[in-house]
């Protein structure tokens, strides 16, 4: 188990290093000067030069890359070009929206998907199965931002149950905070839950046809007992993989939803920073997201080993 974890850890480090280089190079290539963007069309050359010097843009790209990576190793993600505040503080502030939103959406998605998937698999071919399959088909097909707009129309504009967006901040209380995140979380969760339910169902159906389930049934276990005791645990590997991927997706992929609901989260930050060519903020936030994804995958790898003892010895 330890060697397995160590190996994963090394590959994690290499992934991060490669990612940092790719991110930096990609943004180097993108045309657009942050200083020119900030000062606009009437800026004088000497003013531009003064700002570029202050932002450190007059240094060579390798020097800037080195400074960035060195800073990151000590936990310093740099100073935003536009906001002029440490990027770390910005990430921490935005995470207070994005992380709860991702967790909320994932919880909703899991809470919907597990019962639906298990139920559909247990009653394969029944009405329940057909309904679950039909609804999830729809859920996968509907784009989440469109579904979000639809919910805003119904619940915010017509019924006035929720505000159309925005976030009051946690200092306003947990209740109002969660309420503000509910529509976005539902919008994010619906497609995720649909995918997860389908995976859950097919993984269960597959394990249910394995020999050891037949053996278990032959020993006298009921269909339900066999499902809960033997099939479910074995069906968890693909489900865990999907949950891991979904969490990464939710954390990094909320840009559109955050814009639809004008939430001050990480996605919105990246969106604004790209337009303003706040390169250091984009680089650091993307790097942070890569880090989060890699760490989640690492955790999922460990979880595999936990649910499937065979993996511990094999690698």
């Amino acid at each position: 188990m330890l060697r397995y974890a160590l190996r994963r850890l090394i590959s994690l480090g290499v992934t991060l290093l490669v990612a940092s280089l790719v991110i930096f190079l990609a943004l180097e290539v993108v045309p657009g000067d942050p200083a020119a963007y900030m000062l606009g069309v009437n800026a004088r050359p000497d003013t531009l030069a003064a700002l570029r010097a202050e932002l450190g843009l007059d240094q060579t790209p390798p020097a800037r890359y080195a400074a960035w990576v060195a800073g990151m190793l000590t936990g310093d993600l740099g100073l935003s070009y536009t906001y002029r505040t440490p990027v770390v503080d910005m990430i921490v502030e935005r995470l207070q929206v994005s992380l709860p939103l991702a967790v909320y959406a994932l919880a909703l998605s899991t809470l919907i998907a597990f019962p639906a998937g298990i139920w559909a698999a247990a009653r394969r071919g029944s009405v329940v199965d057909v309904v679950v399959m039909g609804v999830t088909q729809l859920g996968v097909a509907i784009p989440n931002f469109w579904f979000a707009m639809l919910m805003v129309l119904v619940f915010s504009i017509n019924l006035r149950w929720f505000s159309a967006g925005g976030f009051p901040g946690w200092e306003a209380g947990v209740g109002p905070g969660l309420k503000a995140l509910t529509l976005p979380a539902v919008a994010l969760a619906l497609p995720q839950a649909s995918i997860l339910a389908r995976i859950m169902r097919s993984a269960l159906i597959e394990t249910l046809s394995e020999d050891y389930i037949r053996t278990a049934r032959a020993k006298g276990l009921s269909r339900g007992q066999a499902l809960w005791r033997h099939a479910l645990r074995n069906a968890m590997i693909p489900v865990l993989t999907i949950i891991g991927l979904q969490f990464s997706f939710l954390l990094a992929g909320v840009i559109i939803i955050e814009n639809v609901f004008f939430l001050p989260g990480l996605g919105r930050l990246v969106f604004q920073a790209i337009a303003a060519r706040d390169l250091i903020a984009v680089e650091s936030v993307v790097m942070f997201l890569v880090f989060a994804v890699v760490v989640v995958n690492f955790a999922v790898d460990l979880a595999y080993a936990w649910v499937d003892p065979r993996l511990r010895g094999r690698r």
Binding site: M149, V152, S156, I157, A164, G165, G166, N259, V260, F262
Partner: peptide, 18 residues
């Protein structure tokens, strides 16, 4: 001052009187 960049979101925010 509330910052709402998306035109559809702006529409919804005004309609909902946010």
């Amino acid at each position: 001052f509330k910052f709402i960049s998306d035109p559809t979101a702006a529409f919804a925010a005004v309609m909902a009187e946010d």
